[in-house]
Design a protein around this nucleic acid. Structure first.
Lengths: 342, 342
DNA sequence: ATACTTTTTGCAAGCGATTGCAATGATTTA
DNA sequence: TAAATCATTGCAATCGCTTGCAAAAAGTAT
């Protein structure tokens, strides 16, 4: 009845205040769980809120300085399973922590990145989760200045000591994968790189090179093919490898999607995997185990990374003075069917 | 210089107004592309905005009644590829239309649905895109009352004439798939249903039954197994089919994920697909073509559905008087490797 | 130059919350 | 019983922006 007065449906704290016979500030305090409210008053207000179906207006709340229970999620793409997996982890955790997320996709348009960051920051989020390849310097400063908490996922850069990051052990993961191949008797091992503007690509390459070196092998430059994390580049690399007169007996790919592309290419060229060529990926995206042969790969705990980043962020939001942390999660070699002893 | 006065970084319209020597309302008008602003003034303001790096504060803007360029996206889950595909389409289109999206996942918690809807609606979005199984009555009324534009994706219900929906031809898709099997000589055809609380499940089942009927075949009740769209239920159905003494020669599954589960089960029981059993899915999620045997399936244009829904919504936002439309997109039979003539 | 339009601008009133500060009531202490 | 203390509550100012309304400026016709 009472609420029918107003034209538009929205029930405000004033409506609740009137219904409960208290002032609007008291309603606000109840809504925010402020401690100094007389229990009986609290009850009255809560009843009124329930009865009127009051829902806080986020824009107003966060404009006035409160929390919006909204975090921003900035990713560069949404097509790759890699990102979807991370987002799944984030979504899962955030939804348990009662946060919603605002998703912004830059679609690789570099110039848009910092505009997006600005928009989100000045916008309405309590914190930011960022999965972007690089170009960080452009907005990190802005963010710190506005002291908006943020966590970088899978970012690999230098001056990282003062900011929160969550990543996987890229170097070690590839190092282990390469060592595994070597233990299986492989001596001629090729490598497909990721997009080199992304920090982790260099780390993975390093893992490959270190492993060869530590086992007394030398990396042949012609077996180091440049990829960009997309399937097509893996496919092309596969074609290249297949048509070499001296070809390696095993290949390490900087991610699963390229590995899958490479296998397709190899098969098209009449080579069998793993009989004629072993291949190992990185990430362990869902497709890796659907594909036949099932892909042997280095699992990066993507969902877990998302979850942890989410928790870190909420932690930062609650306590902004928390010192920054850099987490590196362990990777794990998942043995399936795409590798065979030499 | 000027902006350094303020403690916090945020540049407001007041700062811009001062720098440009005009009133704040003028700045607001320029920011919103209002027509009655003298060109020279507009230029001055724009220069000042650029120089100070002004970014509109969304919360304030939408609180005051403006647009937020934000749409809400309500899904019940984020684990299935089916939803991810739809979201991909939406993201793609929305980002071109310069909207951001706020993602809320209900994680199947029914009671949370309407709370989420409320939150988003009272929150700050200009419109809502909803992918939820059912339970619609609970909030559709709320939405209409607040006249917040919204579009339902893949919703199948009755009283749908007054609301915007985008869906695929579920019945026809399964009808075609079943007919295809029949044309290939199959006479004994099993079926795995989806979760029956979801509207499209009934439609798909109907398609199966209609096809059998139209070809003079009768549906055997013991070949109609209940699934819930998740892989495990497909797997269990596969086991059931495999262990029947009289088993069908082909199976139609209400979605791909269950079909994949069923194939796994059949293989485990020593049956070859498609040699001993043909199977056909629905959706055409990415996994369908990675799997071996590659899955023959009915493609539902998921990304396209997302894109179209996005466009419809933006249309509604711009012109709220637009009449509601119900779009049904055609499905398409994708022939791969999991079906063989009887 | 005067009166009348038509553009451009500025002021002020919200939008729906949060919060510091002051006032009220209740409870203790002396 | 008065004074002092502490939990409760209310008022008013703010957050940054949109917009109706009225005043100022510019342009036209007389």
């Amino acid at each position: 009845m009472i609420k029918e007065d107003k034209k538009k449906g929205a029930v405000t704290i004033f409506d609740v205040a009137e219904a409960a016979g208290v002032s609007y500030s008291t309603v606000s305090r109840v809504a925010n769980g402020y401690q100094f409210v007389k229990p009986t008053t609290r009850k009255k207000v809560e009843t009124a809120m329930k009865q009127l179906g009051y829902v806080a207006n986020l824009k107003a709340r966060s404009l006035a300085g409160g929390r919006s229970q909204l975090i921003g999620l900035l990713v560069y793409d949404f097509q790759s399973s890699y990102l979807v997996e991370i987002v799944r982890g984030i979504d899962d955790e955030m939804s348990q922590l009662d946060y919603d997320m605002m998703l912004s996709t830059t679609h690789h348009r570099k110039q848009k990145e910092s505009a997006h960051v600005q928009k989100l920051a000045q916008g309405m989020v309590d914190g930011l989760l960022i999965v972007l390849p690089s170009n960080l310097e452009a907005y990190v400063e802005d963010l710190s200045r506005q002291n908006l908490p943020f966590v970088l996922i899978d970012y690999t850069g230098n001056e990282t000591e003062t900011i929160n990051t969550v990543r996987a052990s890229n170097r070690k993961g590839v190092y282990d994968a390469t060592s595994y191949l070597i233990q299986l008797g492989h001596r001629e091992i090729g490598f497909i790189t990721g997009a080199m503007e992304v920090g982790c690509s260099a780390e993975r390459l390093q893992g490959y090179q270190d492993a060869l070196h530590d086992h007394g092998l030398v990396a042949r430059p012609d077996w180091l093919l440049a990829g960009d994390f997309l399937e097509m580049s893996g496919y092309l690399a596969g074609k290249r490898f297949a048509s070499m007169t001296e070809r390696p007996t095993a290949i390490v790919s900087s991610n699963d999607v390229m590995a899958l592309g490479a296998i397709t290419a190899l098969q098209e060229m009449g080579l069998r995997v793993p009989d004629d060529m072993s291949i190992i990926g990185f990430d362990d995206v869902p497709e890796a185990s659907y594909f036949r042969p099932k892909l042997t790969t280095v699992r990066q705990p993507l969902q877990e990374m998302g979850r942890i980043a989410a928790r870190m962020l909420v932690q930062m939001i609650k306590n902004p003075d928390e010192p920054a942390a850099q987490l590196e999660l362990p990777t794990e070699l998942i043995v399936r069917e795409s590798v065979r002893p030499r």
